[in-house]
Nucleic acid binder design. Sequence first.
DNA 1: CGCCAGGGCCATA
DNA 2: TATGGCCATGGC
Length: 225
Amino acid sequence: MAEVLDIYQNLLEHFGKLEWWHMERGFTPAEFEVCVGAILTQNTSWSNVEEALELMKSRKLTSPLSIATAKTKDMEEAARPSGFYKQKAERLKMFSDFVMGFGGFRGFSKGVTREQLLGLKGIGPETADSILLYALNMPVFVIDAYTKRVFKRLGILPKGYSRKIAGKTMNDYYAWKRFFESNLPNDTNLYKEFHALIVELAKQHCRKKPVCAGCPLEKGCRKMI
DNA sequence: CGCCAGGGCCATA
DNA sequence: TATGGCCATGGC
């Protein structure tokens, strides 16, 4: 219980608050932009996503209605810098149409369930949880490739939910999710920061080494690791 | 030049 | 259930 929280506090002390989701580009509402970003960033660097978001803004593709009714070609051109642009254009349009089914983003945010999000093509567990956490402020922990990589290297694995197959340890999304949610206080803001801090740490370090030699956390990191 | 990025879908066994 | 191929642009 204490160990995972200690790592969060170390990271927070080192990097400070990151507050990813505070960036705004003129989407309406701002929370909708978070959803769009969550879809655009699938297996894609954030700098590429930013280019796509700017294009969308300049083309007035900044609301559920405008995206749902946009021409596929226009949406594809705007999404292009983020890669996988045909899929993502389709996913953004389907998601926006789904939001409009609630009468708009307000209704969507009040009524949508995790199961409904997962039912949409192109919305998997991580994207769904990112939307729930960062756009709808619900206390769900987001698991991504970085999270698993960093904590595996820390030697911290979800007990009872990991197994070895062909010499490789396989861990599924929900085992990790439950692990974090059961070892952390049920705090939406903490979940938001923690996930961002993990990504920040992973991007700067731990890339190809078994442990974080040279990690900016220095003593703290080595202690925790 | 190769590798990888804040995944997810689909066919296959 | 789980593995491999695929989607695609841009940075290093």
